[in-house]
């Protein structure tokens, strides 16, 4: 199980947060996703054998939000 922290562009509406969180959680291989509204970060626990961090980044960008950087631990 890997953990990724994505720094997103500044989030301004709480509903964007729900949107990103919901979409990430529905992805195959994603265990848990949490979007921090005030620090504009998405924390994701995922299975590396099913999805990659690039996939995570792509899906958030498809929703229309910029991903500034992704850190994995």
């Amino acid at each position: 199980m890997a953990k990724a922290v994505m720094q997103l562009e500044t989030l301004t509406c709480p509903s964007c947060m729900k949107k990103i969180q919901g979409t990430l959680e529905k992805m195959d291989g994603v265990n848990r996703a949490k979007v921090l509204f005030n620090s504009s970060k998405a924390k994701v626990e995922f299975d590396e054998s099913i999805v990659t961090k690039e996939d995570l980044k792509k899906i958030v960008e498809k929703l229309g939000y910029q991903v500034l950087n992704v850190k994995t631990a």
């Binding site: 509406c13 509903s15 729900k18 949107k19 919901g22 979409t23 929703l63 229309g64």
Partner: peptide
């Protein structure tokens, strides 16, 4: 409209 639509998909009233 984009934001309204995206929220609708997530079943939230925006």
């Amino acid at each position: 409209a984009i934001k309204a639509w995206q929220a609708m998909i997530m079943r939230t009233f925006s």
